[in-house]
Amino acid sequence: MVTLLKLTENDKRLIIVLLLLVILVFVIAGYIGILVKKIMDKQGKKMDDLIHDVVVAGVITDRKHLIRFGIKKNHRQLFKDAWLPFSIMAFASFIIILYCIIYQNWNPSFLSDYESTGFNTLFFVFDWKNAPRSTFFGKEIISGWPTLLSKPHFSWKAWGAYLFFPGMIGGALWFLICIQAYIARTIRLFKKSKEVFSKSLENYNVNEVSNTPQNPIQ
């Protein structure tokens, strides 16, 4: 018998560990997906609220009209949801422009300055470029902690960055949630527009109906 590959005990352990890691990643991805789907289902319920009255009152009686109406309502809802995160981002942009005007510094590199004017004055900053490296399977990878360039500290000169970054990141994340809600409502609209006006002949038999004795009208 020809053995193509000989695995040592260590190799087998490594393969098992890698396999378990891959399974773990997929399971975590699965749970994240399930969570996102549940959140989107909840967000999509808002569409029911938006189109309920017109359907129940019989104002809209066909699918195309319902979709057109739903899209209009969805755009309005998006505006209602997104004006606040947009305002936050606009305010953050205004702050940074004001900062640039005050300090007459239009070079955006001041935002990444870890010594006095950047947002990363609040974090540990490492010298990753000059980190110790070793060769591993022909590739150079980092093999140790790099030197620390800066410790977290508060700098008054960085007030612009302190207001700009949280505002932009917070606003952008909030806006992403609004987009997710928008997508969820759109999906719900198309799903419901099919269901609401669908006619079903399930369990309907014309012979059974004609043979059923009708109750005389009292």
């Binding site: 399974i23 997929f26 399971v27 991805a29 749970y31």
Partner: peptide, 14 residues
């Protein structure tokens, strides 16, 4: 249930 979640994870990653 575990395998279902695993399969969903694979689908989501793809």
């Amino acid at each position: 249930e575990f395998f279902k979640t695993l399969l969903k994870g694979v689908i989501y990653v793809v």
